[in-house]
């Protein structure tokens, strides 16, 4: 069972890697990830679900006290799991290698 976004060999797809990278770099809420990865919500959220189903990311609700202080409802924030980081490391190497082949990063890749 290969979740979409992880490629036919089980490797991370390009967008999935972008999302993971954004998360690892500290963009933890859905809309933040969207902005950091320059992807639409219709792309990011399904990817988040699949990554979570695959065990590459985990999610938690933010502290209600914190949210209350800011006068808004609590948000769900995401973090990469160990497997997620490993998959990301593998993807980064691949992407960098691909970039070297083409000499430029594709605008939106297919994994």
């Amino acid at each position: 069972m290969t979740p979409k976004g992880t490629g036919s060999e089980g490797a991370l797809g390009y967008n999935a890697a972008l999302v993971l990278q954004a998360i690892v770099q500290g963009h933890r809420y859905g809309f933040e990830i969207m902005r950091a990865a320059h992807l639409k919500s219709g792309t990011v959220y399904p990817l988040l679900r699949r990554l979570e189903a695959a065990g590459l990311v985990g999610s938690e609700w933010e502290e209600t006290a914190d949210a209350r202080n800011e006068g808004r409802p609590p948000r769900r924030y995401y973090a990469a799991t160990a497997e997620g980081r490993a998959a990301l490391a593998e993807a980064r190497e691949r992407v960098l290698a691909q970039q070297a082949l083409f000499g430029a990063a594709p605008a939106d890749g297919r994994g």
């Binding site: 979740p3 639409k40 959220y45 399904p46 679900r49 699949r50």
Partner: peptide, 17 residues
């Protein structure tokens, strides 16, 4: 509003999973 449209794709993904 544009972002909210993505909710449908999200729903589809969740159903699939």
């Amino acid at each position: 509003v544009g972002a909210a449209l993505g909710a449908f794709a999200d729903a589809r993904a969740m159903t699939e999973i």
